[in-house]
Design a protein around this nucleic acid. Sequence first.
DNA 1: ACTTTTTAGTTGACGCGTCAACTAGTCTTG
DNA 2: CAAGACTAGTTGACGCGTCAACTAAAAAGT
Lengths: 158, 158
Amino acid sequence: MAKDDPEQTVTRAHLQQMITFRVSRLHARLNAQANRILKESSDLSLMQWRVFVTLETMGKITPSEIIRQTNLDKGQLSRAIKSMLDRGLISSETCESDQRAHYIDFTPKGLEHFNRARPHMRARQERLMGSLTPDEQRELFNALQKLDAVVDEMDGKE
Amino acid sequence: MAKDDPEQTVTRAHLQQMITFRVSRLHARLNAQANRILKESSDLSLMQWRVFVTLETMGKITPSEIIRQTNLDKGQLSRAIKSMLDRGLISSETCESDQRAHYIDFTPKGLEHFNRARPHMRARQERLMGSLTPDEQRELFNALQKLDAVVDEMDGKE
DNA sequence: ACTTTTTAGTTGACGCGTCAACTAGTCTTG
DNA sequence: CAAGACTAGTTGACGCGTCAACTAAAAAGT
C-alpha cells in the first residue's frame, strides 16, 4: 500500500469491494498458478490432479461418486477420465452390481505422476495457508462457507 | 450406494480444505449467478457490467486505464468494448494527446441498461455481504488480500 | 534525428467450464 | 413384469478466459 496514491485507493474501491470480483480475480490467479505447477512437475491438468486427490482420499471410486463429493461437472469429469485412461494414468473396472458405472483407480504410472506433483502442490498449499494465521484461516473458510450457503438460498434452493 | 455417513465429512475434507478448490467452486457459482441476473435484468455480460461499474466510478476513461485498475484481460476487454460500441452502449472518443488511445463513456442507452441492472446487482451484493457480520467481512477481505499478496510473491514478483 | 523500448489496442488460437441432449442401465410401483 | 422415473456416463455446442503475436503510436536513449 506504500505507493498507492489517494486516487487509486478511491477508484479501486468500487470494483474491489465486490466479492464476486475479488473472488474471480483470486480464482484466476490461483488457477493459473496451479496449472503451471502441475504442468511443470507432472504434466497433469488441474482436473486430473483433482481426480487423483479424490482417488487418494476415497480409494477406488466411480465418477458419479466423485461428482457427489466435489460438485465437479459431469462432462468435464468424463472427459478428464477418458484422457487419463488413454494415457494409462488410471485403470477402469466395470462395476458388477451396476453395469452403467465403473470404478476407477490409480495405475502405477498414474501414482507416479501424482507423487511427482504432490510435494509441489503441498508446498504451495502450505505457503498459501501459511500467509494466514490459524484464526484467519478459520475465518476465511467460515466466510467461504457462509457465502456458499447464501448462494444456495438465493439460487432457489430455499 | 453410499449415503450420508460420518465418513463423508472426512472424505470431503481433503479437497474442500484446499483453498484453490473452494475459491474455484465459489467463483463458479457467483459467476453463474451474476450472469443470470444480468441477462435477465439488462442483457449485459458480466464483462460489460464491469466496464460500466468502472465507468461509473472513474468517468470517461481509456481501456488501458481500466486494465490498470482492474487487471482485466486486454483482449477480453477490447472485445467487450467493441461489442458495446456496436450495440451503442458506450461512446468512443479518440484521445488527442495520444492517437493510440480512446476514451469511452456511457451513452444514454448504456446508462439505461446499467440502471436496469443496478438495483438487482446491488441487492445481490447486499445479500451476499449481509450473510457476514462486519467482522467477518473484514476478515474475508483481509484474507483475500493476503492470498493475493502471497500469490504475487510466489509468482516471481519477489 | 534515429533507433530502441515501451505502451495502446486488436486479433487469432485454443483450452476450459457450462449446459443440455442423449443412450443405456437400474429402480419403483402399479 | 411392464411403464415411467431416475441415475451413470458420454457427447456436442458454445462462450469465456488466457495467452501470444501483431500493428501502430509514443517515449526514451544515444
